[in-house]
Design a protein around this nucleic acid. Structure first.
Length: 304
DNA sequence: TATCCAAGGTAAGTT
DNA sequence: AACTTACCTTGGATA
């Protein structure tokens, strides 16, 4: 067991752990008190996740617990050097002040950045991210999270750590072995066959979301759409929230509404062109940060 | 209490 | 290539 802490002042632009983990970017963390998304952001709740074996130092699943208390980030892990993974997963190396500074002057962006400064993008493990966003189609944030928890409980390995069990997200093999009917029983609805077939593609070695890495942004987006249940929007989410393409701007219902109301000239009639236009309006390189702040701001504060 | 509706869309079928 | 439609499920709004 390893424990540690760092002052949040060490992170340029600060850190807001709760908004980072409850803003709808990641569905692979859980709150010990089970009160995700209910608006109660008071206190310093512990969050935990289980990292897949292939991403850890020991090649074993890693239980990682983290919380933010008055000016410090604290963690507990089953594996040494956990801070390195934390920096990676929560993008703690990003200089948020510089990113905001590099973003074009814009009333909506200003409000969103002011209201939630400290929220960071995440870097989720690729397979879990892919499945999460396949499940996100026509779903509310809390239910998407519930589905990932159900998948972990039903198909994931249970890792014992510090006196209790933690359910890892299922491996592609375990998910591929599930039947469509079993997945429908977990309330995945029409997404059940998408998840099963995509898991099968990864398990069989036919394709892996990591293969998009290294491709130019639009080619990477295109390559992810070969997975079943993955269109342009879901592909953008995986690129932004897992693979580190900070220029990706997923065109979800909230952003489409924002385009209608605030950037009507960016509506170009199809995904690729509209995406290109709003990406340019949001400053290009870090457009995905702007998207995520606007998404969270509109979803939680109405049209404020 | 019953009905309707929208929720971070995608795949398959038509024009 | 662009446009339409069906698709599971559920919590919250409306009647």
């Amino acid at each position: 067991m390893e424990t540690g802490s760092r002052p949040t002042a060490a992170f340029d632009g600060g850190l807001d752990l709760t908004t980072t983990l409850e803003s709808g970017q990641s569905y692979l963390w859980r709150r010990d008190d089970g009160r995700m998304y209910d608006g109660e952001t008071d206190g310093s709740p512990w969050y935990h996740t289980v990292l897949p074996a292939e991403t850890t130092e020991t090649n074993e699943p890693e239980v990682l617990r983290v919380r933010q208390t008055e000016g410090r980030l604290e963690w507990v892990s089953s594996t040494p050097n956990a801070y390195d993974r934390l920096v990676h997963l929560l993008r703690l190396e990003d200089d948020l002040d510089a990113i905001v500074e590099a973003t074009p002057e814009d009333p909506l962006l200003d409000r969103a950045y002011d209201a939630h400064r400290g929220m960071r993008l995440v870097r989720d493990p690729p397979f879990g991210s892919l499945v999460s966003f396949i499940c996100s189609a026509q779903m509310r944030v809390a239910r998407i999270h519930g589905m990932q928890c159900a998948l972990a409980e039903r198909y994931g390995e249970t890792v014992r750590f510090d006196g209790r069990g933690y359910d890892a997200f299922p491996t592609p093999e375990r998910l591929a072995a599930a039947t469509e009917s079993e997945l429908r029983d977990l309330s995945l609805g029409y997404r059940a066959p998408y998840v099963r077939r995509t898991a099968e593609m990864v398990a069989d070695g036919e394709a892996h979301p990591k293969e998009a890495l290294g491709l130019a942004y639009e080619a990477a987006r295109e390559s992810l759409t070969r997975f079943v249940g993955v269109g342009e929007k879901v592909a953008d989410c995986v690129l932004l929230f897992s693979l580190g393409y900070l220029e990706a701007v997923p065109l979800d219902t909230w952003i489409r509404t924002a385009i209608e109301e605030h950037y009507p000239d960016c509506e170009r009639g199809n995904y690729a062109e509209t995406s290109r236009a709003i990406r340019a309006r949001f400053g290009g390189e870090y457009a995905g940060y702007a998207q995520t702040y606007v998404f969270y701001h509109l979803r939680t504060d109405g049209d404020a």
